[in-house]
């Protein structure tokens, strides 16, 4: 009787086991399909195309191995794009971090209009940068732009900001910082809210009651995880900058503002060298994945330590 019971139980278990597995696959199926179609297959396709000399719309193509990559290394425009992107990231990330943190501290220390300040600084992040780029273009216009008119009015030298090799990249970095600032600000404000008041009280009793001491003892260490997150997000966004280059400079003058994604776009869709563009995409992907991996490692070691 009891043995029979056991056998029945086992059969039931096996049956429900396989049914459960089937149901499981059925449930992850759609997601798996989408990931495959939307991410893995395109990435594979890009890798494959990068190894060919395919031109967009061409009926034939031939496999050329790593030739695209070797010619990329010798390509002056691509090297400029690589250098400009790095310089742009190095300008945007630190300034966003410092300005965002300073603004967050200022807003948090004030008593009134906090929501208002938060909102106006977050606005640039919410609006389309394409539209805002046109506003910036008007502001930076060499003769009728507000920037030059103000500078001239106070007797400072003016410049053709977007048409000069020396100023174009810093100006783009200013616009990029202006746009990322809101995000950094909101994240820092949330981080500041999460610092327990008792920690400030303890610091005050321990003697760390000056502004700098308090920053060093409580605020900055407590914000370290948030700062890291801000760096990751702003850095990835900066690496993927495309719209302001496309609208304001088209990479000019003389490739002084060409960046990785713009170079990719230009090769693929203006010169129609799809294989070459795919090679740039591969390099872009490798850089971004490497950065993300490094940062994840840093985050992990930090969180496991503290």
């Amino acid at each position: 009787m009891s043995q029979q019971q056991v056998v029945v139980d086992r059969e039931l278990w096996v049956e429900t086991g396989s049914a459960e597995a089937l149901a499981g696959y059925a449930l992850v199926g759609p997601a798996l399909f989408l990931i495959l179609v939307l991410f893995i297959l395109p990435a594979g396709a890009v890798l494959a195309i990068a190894a060919t000399d395919w031109h967009l719309g061409a009926k034939t193509l031939s496999f050329i191995g790593t030739a695209n990559f070797t010619s990329l290394l010798a390509d002056r425009a691509f090297r400029a794009a690589l250098f400009n992107t790095a310089a742009y990231v190095l300008m945007v990330v630190p300034s966003t971090l410092v300005l965002g943190l300073s603004l967050a501290l200022l807003i948090e220390s004030g008593k009134s209009l906090r929501a208002f300040y938060r909102a106006i600084h977050f606005l640039p992040f919410m609006t389309s940068l394409a539209a805002m780029a046109i506003v910036w273009e008007a502001l930076l216009h060499p003769t009728i732009g507000l920037v030059n008119q103000v500078l001239a009015a106070v007797g400072l030298p003016t410049a053709n900001w977007l048409r000069s090799e020396t100023t174009v990249l810093p100006i783009l970095a200013v616009i990029g910082t202006w746009q990322s600032l809101g995000l950094a600000l909101v994240l820092f404000l949330a981080g500041l809210k999460a610092i327990p008041q008792e920690l400030y009280d303890a610091a005050e009793i321990d003697g760390a009651d000056g502004l700098l001491d308090r920053l060093q003892t409580v605020t900055l260490p407590s914000l370290a995880p948030v700062s890291l997150f801000v760096v990751i997000v702003v850095m990835l966004r900066a690496f993927a900058t495309f719209d302001i280059v496309q609208i304001l400079t088209k990479g000019g003058p003389d490739d002084a503002s060409v960046m990785l994604l713009y170079a990719l776009y230009r090769e693929s869709f203006e010169y129609l060298r799809t294989g070459y563009g795919a090679a740039i995409a591969v390099i872009f992907l490798v850089i971004v994945i490497a950065l993300a991996a490094i940062q994840t490692r840093v985050v992990n070691t930090r969180t496991s330590r503290s």
Partner: peptide, 26 residues
């Protein structure tokens, strides 16, 4: 005066000895 808080309010990024040394360093 010295104070002990309900949540202890230890500085999370400092070691025990650094936590204890802070009032003296300051």
């Amino acid at each position: 005066v010295a104070m002990v808080f309900q949540s202890y309010a230890l500085y999370p990024h400092l070691t025990v000895s650094e936590n204890m040394a802070l009032p003296l360093r300051m």
